[in-house]
Amino acid sequence: MDETNTDVIQGTLDMLILKTLSLEPMHGFGIARRVEQISRGVFKVNPGSLLTALQRLERAGWLDSEWRQTENSRRAKFYALTRAGKKQLEVETADWTRRSSAIARVLKAEG
């Protein structure tokens, strides 16, 4: 097994999920795959954490869920962003940008 750390950075999983769902409603596996693809394999999402996070986000009112047919006619639980979820994504994105650029500045200053 390769030793590279593929864990999602702590505290960012919610944001990643919200961002992914802002494109289109998706089921759990779809979200995991999309995160993996877009991050080009840097992040791998663990299904236990993902499903727990989905349940939490749904209860927080940021996601809605429903059972639907997939394109290959299977039943899957699809998650969609709510209006509150959209707002939350903006808040978290802004917060993340602010903090990551700050970290980048600190690191540059040291380098």
Binding site: H27, G28, F29, P47, A76, K77
Partner: peptide, 17 residues
């Protein structure tokens, strides 16, 4: 049941992938 189905579905899709 819901949860089990969701996890099973996840597993199936991973397999399919």
């Amino acid at each position: 049941g819901d949860l089990a189905e969701e996890v099973q579905d996840y597993l199936d899709q991973t397999t399919a992938a």
